[in-house]
Amino acid sequence: MEGWDPTTKSTLTQIPLLTVKAGPRDGASWTQRLKEEYKALIAYTSMNKSKDNDWFRISAANPEGTRWTGKCWYVHNLLKYEFDLQFDIPVTYPATAPELELPQLDGKTHKMYRGGKICLTVHFKPLWAKNSPRFGIAHALCLGLAPWLAAEIPVLVDSGMIKHKDDAVSTSET
């Protein structure tokens, strides 16, 4: 955890850790795990809201809780950039981390695998591996997606690869 800023560190310590080691094929224990995932997400979301740092929405897209969809956003130069967020829970979860996808950014940055999967290899995967099965979806968002957005969105905006939605609308109107 060296190299991480103190805010992220203190936020992380407040997200409850998970205990059940179960994947989507483990039946009843997966339901237990899913409950813990929800608790961690609820704790993380309410913490973000209380700190006025709300930055994502995520909910299960199927009853089994194996596919998740939502939104995430990042504020750069006082403008809010919002993206669709989606991922599948891999069969080997929680031994392997979910692969977070931002499909709208597919092809716009090389720090991404095909289909808009963000590159988590260096900054997040080793952390996940060391903390499996105690880390969950909330931790993946906090330590995987948040730093990626903070590093990539300013570059993408400054290089003109992505435009703010107000700019995009005004150019299409004229």
Binding site: T31, L34, K35, Y38, I42, T45
Partner: peptide, 18 residues
């Protein structure tokens, strides 16, 4: 130990936050 509430309840709690 995990006696607290059921899955649907937790789902609703998260949606409420959204």
């Amino acid at each position: 130990v995990d006696t607290v509430d059921d899955l649907e309840d937790l789902k609703r709690q998260l949606e409420a936050l959204h």
